[in-house]
């Protein structure tokens, strides 16, 4: 049972990691990397480390995502301030 959960979550993590590296949209990639952390925190609970799971859930999937999104919104605001569109963001 635990083994099946481990394999399921592992495959989901790998898929989310691939999405994070290869998706077209940056916000999707950022959210996918948050999903990787969230699934990792489930695995930490399975492996008897609830302290680490709490930290990973609070930091890896919440604060890191927020920090990424803040940085991305700053980059976009710099790009939108440029009059010409030579500042390329995608």
């Amino acid at each position: 049972m635990i083994l099946a959960m481990l394999i399921t979550f592992g495959v989901m993590m790998l898929v989310a990691a691939l999405v994070a590296l290869y998706s077209r949209d940056i916000v999707t990639a950022i959210v996918a990397s948050g999903v990787v952390s969230l699934l990792a925190s489930v695995l930490y609970v399975l492996f008897g480390a609830p302290d680490v799971a709490m930290t990973e859930a609070a930091i890896g999937s919440a604060l890191t995502t927020v920090v990424f999104l803040f940085a991305w919104s700053r980059i976009r605001s710099i790009a939108s301030r440029d009059d010409s569109t030579n500042g390329e963001v995608r």
């Binding site: 302290d51 930290t55 609070a58 919440a62």
Partner: peptide, 14 residues
Amino acid sequence: TPGGGFQGGVVIAS
């Protein structure tokens, strides 16, 4: 219980 300074600090930061 599970938890401590780092986790609590992160919750406060959130």
